[in-house]
Amino acid sequence: MDIVEELLNHNKLALAKGITAVENEYDNAVEIMTKIYPRTGHAYVIGITGPPGAGKSTMTDKIAKEYSKRGFTVGIVAIDPTSPYSGGAILGDRIRMMDLTADEKIFVRSMATRGSLGGLSQKTGDAVKLMDAYGMDRIIVETVGVGQSEVDIVKTADTSMVVVIPGMGDDIQAIKAGILEIGDLFTINKADRDGTDKLNIEIEMMLELNPEYHGWRPPINRTIASKGIGIEAVVDSIEEHKKYLEESGKLAEIRKARTKSEVTAMLNDRVNRYIDEKVVNTKAFDEQIVKMQTREIEPYSVVDEIVAKVLK
């Protein structure tokens, strides 16, 4: 099967195989990405993040259905953590999305973090590009359940939505740095629970105190995702944010910054691998490390020498 040709032809199996090739860094991965790159840039990418148990998967399921109802095709990348001990993972986001398998317009892919710590997997960006080239209008990236500092989603998504639930802590949580700073949209899920009004006020206060907003004030929606309540308003808000970014020219800025950060990451990766091969995995380097243990040599000049020699 010619993965690229078939993928561009809307063959779902080819899309699935393409993501596997990229995720596992098969020999054909670079060739696939090279060929599909010119066909990307059309999809609008929505990030959904929030703490474990906030309802991200259920929300993703319902948002995808609403988009489908409005005539859009939807790709979903749902990420769950890899065990640092066994290297295995249980990817359970799909449990909430099994209905979507019957919808021809929707494609769901589960991914494990495989060691990445920012809430995404290293290959999330490439999986998004493959779905983009396949022809998805909207791509939803659902992060792992995050704590306070896993904010990589903002580098991948055009619109980032933070899902929160009542009862997770007092208002000092809301003024800390971290995930609450990255929301273009906030959604209070499980909004039939006690504490919803209080949480709403706390987020409002946090937003009031933020001097950074130029033109876009993040809306706060309330949902009960398991019952599908409030989902239409969330999708409306996402589309309003999209319109705002397009009309203000900010979407172009965001995407330029994203390309720059992606290419920088690729360069760093290439340089790291080169250094591993030429320096770190050599006998000479091991010997130098041993000499450092007895303080015969010190690391700072060694690093200077290596950089001067290897990266000239």
Binding site: A16, S86, A89, T101, A102
Partner: peptide
């Protein structure tokens, strides 16, 4: 999971079609 596999857990009361389609999408 403890053996190092990536396990996609899909839950209960599924149709064969849902299972096969999920297997395809997750390859």
């Amino acid at each position: 999971r403890d053996a190092g596999f990536e396990v996609i857990y899909t839950g209960i009361r599924l149709t064969p079609e849902q299972i096969a389609e999920a297997a395809l999408q997750d390859d």
